[in-house]
Computed example of a mutant assay.
Amino acid sequence: MIDLADHWIDLREYVLRLVGPTGEDKPAPIVPRANVAGRALMTVIAIMTFLASLTVGAVTLVSDTASQWQNDISREITVQVLPDDGVDMAAALADVRRIALTTQGVTGATILDDAATGRLLEPWLGDGLNLDDLPVPRLVIISIDQDSPPDFVALVARLQSEVPASELDDHRAWVSRLVTMARATVLVGVGVLTLVLVATTLTVVFATRGAMSGNRHIIEVLHFVGARSAFIAREFERHFLRLGLVGAVIGGATALVLFAMMGFWTASNTATPEADQISALFGSFSIGWIGYVGVVALVATVGGLTAFTSRLTVVRHLAEIDMISPVER
C-alpha cells in the first residue's frame, strides 16, 4: 500500500529545494558545492592523508626490513681471523673454511678476498689499500641451513681449538637490537596514524558545524516543515564525502609518487654510498603491493570517515533542535 504521507513529504522537500537561492530550475543544494571553507577542508584532508600515507609507507618499509634482517640471521654467520704475530693469515682462513664445510648444518663458506675487503674499508681508508701492510681482520662468510642450523657452541669450540685467532659472530646481538628498534618504530607509526585520523575526524566535525551554522535558517526551516533528518544528513554526507575523497586521493597519490621517486632514485644510484646506506636500511625503498593496498585502503577510510562524521554531526545537531522547546526557538 502506498504511503501518501511519505510521498507528500518527499514532494514538499523537492519543492523547497526548487525555490532555493540559486534561482535555477534545478534543485539547489543545501550545502554550497564550491566555497572557501570547502576548499580549505579539502586541502587539510589532503595534507592529513599525505602524512598518514607516508606513515603507512614507512611502517611497511620498516616492517619488511625487520623481516629481512631476521632472515639474514638464519642465513649467514661471519668468522673473522684477527691478525697476530705468528699467524699465517692464508692458512688460518683456509682452516676456518675447512672447519665450516665439515660442520653439519653449514651449506657453504666463502673467504672474503682482498678486493672485497678493500671495498668494505674504502669509505674510511680510501681506495688502493695494501692489506698486507695493515693489521686488518679477514672474514669468512658461512652460509647455514635455515631448517637445520649447526650447533654454534660446538662450532665455536672447534674454531678456538684449531684456529685460536678466529672469532665467530652470528650477528644476533646487533640485529636483535635493530629488530627491536624496527618494532618500536612500527608502534610509533601506528600511533601517529591514529592521531592523524583523530585530527581529521575533529576537523570534519568543526567543518560540518560551520557549514550547518552558515545554512542554519535553511536547515531549520526544512526540518520544521517536515523534512526528514535522514534527507538533510544525506545532503551533508554527499557533500563531505566528495570533499573527503578528492582530498584523500590527492594526498595519497602524492605520497605514492614520492615513494616511487625515491625507489627510482635508489635503483639509479646503487653504486653511491648514499644509496647503499638507504638500501641497507630500507632495502630497495619499495613499499610493495602491501604498501600500495594500505594507501588505497587509507584513502577509502578517510573518505568514508569524513562522510560518516558529517552525517553523525548533522543528526546530533537536528536531535538537539528537536529537544529545544518552541518558546526557546
Rank of each mutant, 00 (worst) to 15 (best):
D3Y: 12
D3F: 10
A5Y: 05
A5P: 00
I9C: 07
R12S: 12
E13F: 13
E13P: 02
L16A: 11
V19N: 14
D25T: 04
I30Q: 02
V31M: 13
A34Y: 08
N35G: 15
V36T: 06
V36F: 08
A40C: 12
L41W: 10
L41E: 04
M42A: 15
M42S: 08
V44R: 01
I45D: 08
I45T: 12
A46P: 11
L51V: 08
L51E: 01
A52P: 03
A52V: 02
A52R: 00
A66K: 07
Q70F: 08
Q70C: 08
R75H: 15
V79M: 01
Q80A: 05
L82S: 06
D84K: 11
G86Q: 10
G86A: 05
A91I: 06
A94Y: 04
V96A: 04
V96L: 01
R97I: 12
I99S: 04
Q104L: 05
V106Q: 05
L112Y: 08
A116F: 02
A116Y: 02
G118C: 03
R119Q: 14
W124L: 14
L125N: 02
L129W: 03
L129H: 04
P135D: 14
R138S: 06
I141P: 00
S143D: 13
S143F: 00
I144P: 11
D145I: 04
Q146V: 15
S148M: 12
P149E: 03
D151K: 12
F152K: 01
A154S: 13
L155A: 07
A157S: 13
R158S: 13
R158A: 14
S161V: 02
A165D: 13
A165C: 04
H171N: 06
R172C: 02
V175C: 09
S176K: 11
L178K: 00
V179Q: 08
A182D: 03
A184L: 15
A184Y: 09
A184M: 12
G189P: 03
V190C: 06
V192H: 01
T194D: 03
V196Y: 05
V198Q: 01
V198W: 08
T201Q: 05
V204E: 00
F206D: 01
R209V: 11
S213C: 01
S213N: 14
G214M: 03
R216L: 15
E220Y: 00
F224Q: 06
A230G: 13
R234N: 15
F236H: 07
F236T: 01
V246R: 05
G247M: 02
V249L: 10
V249N: 00
A253V: 14
A255I: 05
V257P: 02
V257L: 13
L258H: 10
F259K: 00
A260Y: 10
F264T: 15
W265T: 14
A267W: 05
N269R: 09
T270K: 10
A271G: 12
A271S: 10
A275C: 07
I278P: 03
I278Q: 14
F282M: 04
S284E: 13
G288I: 12
G294V: 06
A297E: 11
A297Q: 10
V302S: 09
A307N: 09
T309L: 10
S310H: 00
R311I: 10
L312E: 00
T313F: 02
R316Y: 06
L318N: 09
E320D: 09
E320H: 09
E328G: 00
E328M: 02
